[in-house]
Write a protein that binds this DNA or RNA. Sequence first.
DNA 1: TTCAGTTCTGTTCAAATGAACATCACACCA
DNA 2: TGGTGTGATGTTCATTTGAACAGAACTGAA
Lengths: 313, 313
Amino acid sequence: MQSDPEIQKLLCKVAKAYYEDGLTQQVIGQRFGLSRIKVSRLLSQAREQHIIQIGIATPPGSYVELEHELERRYTLDEAIVVPAQDDAQALRQALGLAAASCLVRSLQGHETLGLTWGNTLLSTVAALPANNWPEMRVVQILGGLGHPEADVYGADLVHRAAQTFGAKARVLAAPGIVASPEVRAALLADAQIADTLTLAAQADIALVGIGRPTVNSVVMQSNILTKAEFAALQALGAVGDIGLRFFDADGYAIPHAINDRIIGLNLEQIAAIPRVIGVAGGAEKFEVIRAALRGKLINVLVTDKENARRLVA
Amino acid sequence: MQSDPEIQKLLCKVAKAYYEDGLTQQVIGQRFGLSRIKVSRLLSQAREQHIIQIGIATPPGSYVELEHELERRYTLDEAIVVPAQDDAQALRQALGLAAASCLVRSLQGHETLGLTWGNTLLSTVAALPANNWPEMRVVQILGGLGHPEADVYGADLVHRAAQTFGAKARVLAAPGIVASPEVRAALLADAQIADTLTLAAQADIALVGIGRPTVNSVVMQSNILTKAEFAALQALGAVGDIGLRFFDADGYAIPHAINDRIIGLNLEQIAAIPRVIGVAGGAEKFEVIRAALRGKLINVLVTDKENARRLVA
DNA sequence: TTCAGTTCTGTTCAAATGAACATCACACCA
DNA sequence: TGGTGTGATGTTCATTTGAACAGAACTGAA
């Protein structure tokens, strides 16, 4: 930690030679009569002493700082922040666009992609670019919504995504919530369904919405999750769900009988997927998102600026 | 060369992760879902587009920029610039101090150091720090000055340097210039002298003054180099000398009979030494220094600010 | 003095990096 | 429709780099 001006000058000269002239440490050593390792040490010293200042120009209108802070705070692999939108539909589009480009970036064409469903995912799938990846699979992580014959919602998303990717679709021919554990057991006995779930658990990437059921949300409007059940979940601390698996403010799974009636991966299985991209925006989602982050249920978060601000606050 | 804002943002994020967080390209790739090589390419792209700005804090009162420019302009290994001084003695001290620290920096204790002589070298040797390097040798590159019995000047410098280094001294028991080629031949027949010159030619490092004889300089005052001879050299284009070997404005050796009367390495031999540190300052030396640089006779230049300014102009 | 602790140094080794090459997809043109 | 070039991508390999280790030099205290 010397501050001998002679040393300072040497640090500066070595740094210049390395960073400005792009010389290798070896040749710098030869030129200045220093050993290679000494040059290396001088450089780290120069970095420590901030003789070398590295600045990164952040493109205007992007929230790189905010994203970075989110990544650090919640040890996320990546955070993507889109501008806040007044209109819910516009917000979903913005989120979908961002999530889509983040997703395709990490695809090579031979992986297995897991999907839940929801309005935001709908926008995401709509924003996916066309491709021809016959090796790829798109798998449904969670059964469809509503009556068995109306399960298009979940399966449709999977089909659509698979089609634009030119990939194989693997749908879950079952509702997300069934009437009883017995029905579930019966469905799980089906080889098709069991295999699909096994495949889903081995997905390389998953794209999931982060939900917060309200009285007029899709989940509630289909009469599968009753108000009473929802109230019970809330009483147990539930702040929202991923793939109908409810969790509390710290992201811990809520133990409740409903879990035995769900056809889909559980939180543990979802979290075990190497890369889980969670998409959610809008003020009402704040708590759930925070919970999902705390519980490390997702690796990548795509959200809006307002939520991002509150999350780092 | 895309300027898609989406790409810009990614560049920025990757750059931040790499430079600010110090993450490896590998883990950045894993986090953002990119291949390692892609991260590498994004980083070079970011450098190209100056999204990454690297600044180096130059310590105030030093001439790092000037030195850097000199190094680039004349493909020097290193340039060292000291503040200009009005007093010739003060200038020599400043030069000597700088040259000394530059020299010791490149010494490990087992190399052979060649020395010429001169007032500036005297100051340099005086500024050398004490050491204990029994493996090291200090060799005289050029015979002494004046009468054989008064050759202390050159040999003394070598002795002094060897002593402070705790090294072995190898002096040249001969004058720098002798009366005739025959005398020179006789001296070179001496095993001692011949061996010393052989050793000198194999020096790892040499410390040399850059001279410009004037009527009252040491070289002229000893009556060995006559005014007539000097005039003849000048007529042939000589601008100065290193080790009594005169060269023209481009650093080319001047062919002249005097060369056959000098006991010491020739320019070619000196230039062949891996690291030649040339020390010279003061307005009158400008031309010689420039010539020495053009001829690539030295690898390291130690000079004053004024000369440096003129050299890069 | 001698001893232990500290710092400085070079060596060795494994990780990280960039360059060269091969491949593939796409677009442009005949 | 079929070249044909261009750009993007991944693989392989050599270089570059930093970390761990070990020895030497120095410091301060007993």
